[in-house]
Nucleic acid binder design. Sequence first.
RNA 1: GGUGAGGUGGCAGAGUGGCUAUGCGUUCGCCUGCAAAGCGAAUCUAUAGGGGUUCAAAUCCCUUCCUCACCUCCA
Length: 468
Amino acid sequence: MKMRIFDTLSVAEKNIDTSSSVRIYLCGVTVYDESHIGHARTIIVFDTLRRYLESKGVKVNLVQNFTDVDDKIINRAKKENTSAETITTRYIKNYFDDFDKLNVKRADLYPKATEHITDMIDLIKGLIEKGFAYTSKNGVYFSVSKFKDYGKLSKKKIDELVSGARVEVDETKKDPLDFALWKFSDDSPTWESPWGNGRPGWHIECSAMSLKYLGSNFEIHGGGRDLIFPHHENEIAQSESFSGINFAKIWMHVGMVTINGEKMSKSLGNTKSIDHVLKRWGPNIIRLFCLSGHYTKPIDYSEDILKETITKWRQVENCYFEMILADNSQAIDGLDQIRNIIQESKAEFDSALDSDFNTPLALGVFFKLVKNINQLASSEKLTKTISDAVLPTFQEMSSILGLQVIQVTDNEKNMISNLIKQRDIFRSQKKFLEADAIRKQISDMNIVLIDHKNKTLWMKQEKIGIED
RNA sequence: GGUGAGGUGGCAGAGUGGCUAUGCGUUCGCCUGCAAAGCGAAUCUAUAGGGGUUCAAAUCCCUUCCUCACCUCCA
């Protein structure tokens, strides 16, 4: 396969090297609070990318870290009068609860910073030996001026950064731009190091863990756009100074989620937790929303847009049930035509994703296919043969997008079809009150009846919180 | 101020030189015992403003205006 992704570093689209496995390092979350819709977007984008690559038979090795040592965690622990570990354990569990519900496949590995302290210490040692880092009163620092390419990812010039005012003043650093690799501290949790007790800086953890698990030069390093500077810039400085070779082949950054056009932030109090949006919209709507704009661009979370998405999702559900409940009673024609549609859809879908992972375009292709099937169903031309021809493609696309139509048990199926039979009898006797009572009973099970000319089908709808 | 990304119909969102996606919305209609769901038709002829290149530009160049993000922890 030939897939191109926009690389932040070279400011150009680059081919993903799929000759062997595709190694992806994704910067995960700091576990001091609930995850929000912004985290969801980044992680769903990478989950979908991974699903797509795997659907093409490409082996993916996805590593996503948990930052479980950080000042915010310690502050939260102090506030709750408990240990940092209690906090991180709670929010790691919370993370998996949320993302399992969002149908995000588990990464191959979720390394935690606290479990890689020795790797970080080794890395820092190496950087000191090579002359890129030094010890001072408050910790060990990376000397930015020693790394000549500093600023190449974020396109910043060192001189401008210095004059750009908002650099923390710290007399103990040789240069205001130098950043901490190791911070001395007696506040628990701390670890021993050759330089003194303390804890690692944020940036060093991702360098240490990505180098350890994916090597010095892997295919894709990703995260939110807000991580470009300083986090990823610093990772490049550390990793390339240590290894002497180029770090990630492609830097892939996902745009921010705004809320009604405003940046989402704790201080504005407008964050939307995953728990909140799941209760309100459910996983499929959220995934569709997160993939509805090109991943490099910002997307705006607003009720109106999410509501539109419900309509689309209902069409997908309708399409699925029309297909699985199609029967043989019709003449078989139009099969060649539908085969063409399937071929075209597949080709367009792949081509959209191959071209810098254009998910909005791919979604459009998927919806078009859904529309085509619903058209056939509406005109009583959807036979079982046609359904069987389309279903694999429908399911493959759904699976890549991580969408899941709600499933029904055989018991439910039997019960529903019995109720429908009873209702049909009442209808034929023009006992509409009784028929409507059955319809109500069915609808209480989240089943919607689809009355065609000569038959009644049904679909199970996902419950969407906001519609209650 | 610096850097980057943008400004496309009521809304969302593709499209990097020519054939003006797609979806939502709205209106009417089909279907129905009535609904629901679905479908059809109609509506909308958009490309921030100005200039230029070209037979031809949303698409290339110049310019003006505007928006957003990052430059501090942040997905």
